[in-house]
Nucleic acid binder design. Structure first.
Lengths: 215, 215
DNA sequence: GTAGAGTTAGCACGATCGGTCGTACTAAGT
DNA sequence: ACTTAGTACGACCGATCGTGCTAACTCTAC
């Protein structure tokens, strides 16, 4: 049935030039969304920012909803690249926990997105707006928390953390601290926020004492 | 000079009915802003929600900016009533810290604003939008953090907390946990979030052990 | 009770919103 | 080379945006 019209399961190949502009559009869209929000991201603004006509945009995305979903997907890619991969590359367990936090701080500080963390900025905005975009954002947050929890579990197994730590609680705390740091950093535009946030993380993970022991 | 046109320093009294509608408008505006954002809060929507014509709104607020500022002010009033006052009424020190967190959780859970905490929702939105509204939101956040810090300092003086706790760090952590709980609660719409958040707070403040000692 | 100021509605403006249509160019598959 | 389809454009749609202007209505002070 379904194999009839799709010979190679890829009946509609994309052109190379279209792929490039699509990337450029999504990159600009993700950046704009952290400033104007996913809802405030207007087709006109995005067209002006990219130098493409509105109807040109609609050749790539049939509706604003599709554009929003594709933008979230692009932001997921960036987050994976900027935060998740550096974390996974670190020493399993406590090292990954610390690396994840540090990568996040760096990702916010370097203004990878002008409005701070994409998901912090958009999750609260879409929280009260049910729909596929919110669902997707919720999934990303869940996955990130799950990642932190898995790191915590490994750290516990390796006795790098106090035995009466709860992975769920710790993941919740760390995630909250990352979000809080992002919020304050964006709001105050003050590097001191990150200094304090790093102190909190180090103390929470007991890295100050562990650092000389691991060397 | 200035006393010439102002006989009793209150030359423009407000009418009672106007004051009522103004309150009603601001109440609806604050609620709407937690869903649509302060920028997405449109005059037309607000007029429809309150049953007042758009031009009627403009008799109270000369511009959208003024409306936004007045809305933030209204939200400050609600926060003071719902969170700050219950906290201040508690036992000075650790009790106030716990009461502030609990009052915040309750304020979010009871959906005082449909989109969760007003300031969590709007601060991130306006973070990348410089202007008087952002400044005001930043001030509120600073004041709240300062409040938590003062509680922590008192608690330290009363030896209710470990001596090597830093009030700044603790205030930062607690504030972050409150924001994180709000974010996840709104995003997942799951009461379990608050259960976990309360556990984290209790553990962080060492309330589990202290509770039977204080009884 | 009359005056005047606070209050509200009606109407309309330019701009922008998300979205559609027809068209032209061009990179691929044959 | 010829066709096909992805790509991009300009013009345009109805709706809504924020914001004025004017004219009623109504409470309140004299």
């Amino acid at each position: 049935m379904t194999t009839e019209s799709a010979k190679h399961d890829r009946p509609r190949p994309r052109r190379a030039d279209g792929e490039r502009t699509r990337r450029a559009i999504l990159s600009a869209a993700a950046a704009l969304a952290t400033v104007d929000g996913l809802e405030g991201l207007s087709i006109g603004n995005l067209a002006t920012a990219t130098g493409i006509s509105k109807s040109g945009l609609y050749a790539h995305f049939g509706s604003k909803l599709e554009l929003q979903l594709a933008t979230v997907e692009e932001a997921e890619r960036v987050l994976a690249e900027e935060v998740v991969q550096p974390a996974l590359a670190a020493q399993p367990g406590l090292g990954q926990l610390a690396a994840a936090c540090e990568a996040f701080f760096s990702y916010v500080e370097r203004r990878v997105f002008p409005g701070g963390c994409f998901f912090a900025a958009t999750s609260l905005e879409m929280g009260a707006r049910p729909g596929p975009v919110k669902d997707r954002l919720a999934r990303v947050q869940s996955e990130f928390t799950a990642l932190l929890r898995s790191f915590a579990t490994t750290a516990l197994e390796q006795h790098e953390l106090s035995a009466h730590e709860d992975p769920d609680q710790l993941a919740f705390e760390l995630h909250a601290i990352l979000l809080g740091a992002d919020t304050k950093f964006v709001l105050y535009d003050d590097p001191a926020v990150m200094v304090l946030a790093r102190q909190v993380i180090h103390q929470r993970l007991g890295l100050d004492k562990a650092s000389d022991a691991s060397a």
